[in-house]
Design a protein around this nucleic acid. Structure first.
Lengths: 217, 217
DNA sequence: TCAAATATAAAATATCACAGTTGAAGGGCG
DNA sequence: CGCCCTTCAACTGTGATATTTTATATTTGA
């Protein structure tokens, strides 16, 4: 039991660094649901004092990555099917919105950028789906929407989902192929200008990514 | 120019109090878009040290009420039609979700509770729409969904919208009637068990509430 | 008049003091 | 001898404050 692996941070802008370090750990599924963390421990691991960690943690609480317990401890929300379903519903609703917006303001260069991500060589060294590639594809797509409102909300959803990744990591390696196929399908639809088809493929992709955790979709 | 009116707070649980004081000020439209605030000023106004304010503000940043400027000041997001449209789209998408969920787990007592809010006497003393009654109706409805994921997201959307209320307050008094009519319509549809109709009425209500700020809906 | 240097004010971090909680050791009772 | 209750020590978050860093405004010198 060596706890979640968090990258150490360095110099100024400590708050921001602490936040992104913790956020990265979440996205990689390092925090198991139900884990309780202490500010002092986190501060030690990050090599800073408590102050920046406190602020970073406050933000993560607001984003749903941690929850405050009645005894004022910090806990990673335990697994909950209801919560999971809500996360999926919200993702389906909001990511559909940004996809439509992105499709409208998208040029050939953007398509090329997406293709470059898809064509990136996969890493066969790690078991489990290629988390970074998945994240990259979705968010370079969503960033094209340019929405300062919707993007942070979707990031928060991914963050909350990220904790549950802990469950499926080291387990479902076959997923990667399917995931990649969905990405290809989304991009093809966008190239053809068929936004409805792209949205349908995106919905399949999202539902699939919840498939392991939510038996009946 | 006497700045936003923020209620002073008292004893322990300072962070939570600071948060709800600031949040309340936002919801009442006390913060004009584009306002820049300093932590010290806020701390002084609230009568506490900077620490609780700092953490409260972090949460508000995560919820989109404040944004960090490059010069590490805090700013209330300036008015932006794009932002406004996104807020509306997100509300339409997410509040539709929770309405459906709420409708399923709703009993006669819940209906009665909603009716009680609607039948509350309006306050003719204040110009502008009755903000509290509006909030009460929507959130007692949404709370019935019991979603720990969706509710905080929607609250954040209302919070961001709240800053823009500053623009329409003291202006659109006629809205209240229309708003009330929508609420009645939503409730009637729910009583009849017609969820689709309730959702349609909700969408009208949301669109209307953005109407003053977004000319063409 | 403009630019560089400096002074001032605010924020970021670190540290400190305090109060509540937790969990385990120890003592008393069945 | 075993179980439960009490007690106490270590640990936690919270709020305050001191210190350092950074940005902005001001002044000074060319």
């Amino acid at each position: 039991m060596d706890g979640p692996r968090i990258q150490k941070i360095e110099q100024s802008k400590l708050r921001e660094s602490a936040y992104s370090a913790l956020r990265g750990a979440f996205m990689r599924g390092e925090f198991a649901p139900g884990t309780v963390v202490s500010l002092r421990t986190l501060a030690d691991q990050l090599g800073t004092s408590m102050t920046p960690v406190r602020e970073a943690v406050r933000r993560l609480v607001a984003e749903g990555a941690f929850v405050d317990t009645p005894s004022r401890k910090l806990e990673v929300p335990p697994f909950d099917e209801r919560r999971m379903k809500d996360l999926m519903s919200a993702r389906l609703a909001l990511e559909g919105l940004v996809l439509r917006q992105a499709a409208q303001s998208m040029g050939p260069g953007d398509i090329a950028g997406l293709r470059a991500i898809i064509d990136q060589p996969r890493r066969p060294d790690l078991q489990g789906p290629d988390l970074e590639a998945n994240y990259d594809f979705h968010f370079t797509l969503y960033r094209l929407s340019g929405s300062e409102v919707l993007l942070p909300m979707i990031e928060a959803l991914w963050l909350q989902y990220g904790a549950y990744l802990n469950r499926i990591i080291h387990e479902a390696a076959a997923q990667e192929l399917e995931e990649h196929a969905h990405h290809v399908e989304i991009l093809a639809a966008l190239e053809a200008g068929d936004i409805a088809a792209a949205e349908a493929a995106l919905q399949d992709d999202i539902k699939r990514s919840f498939g392991v955790l939510l038996p009946a979709v």
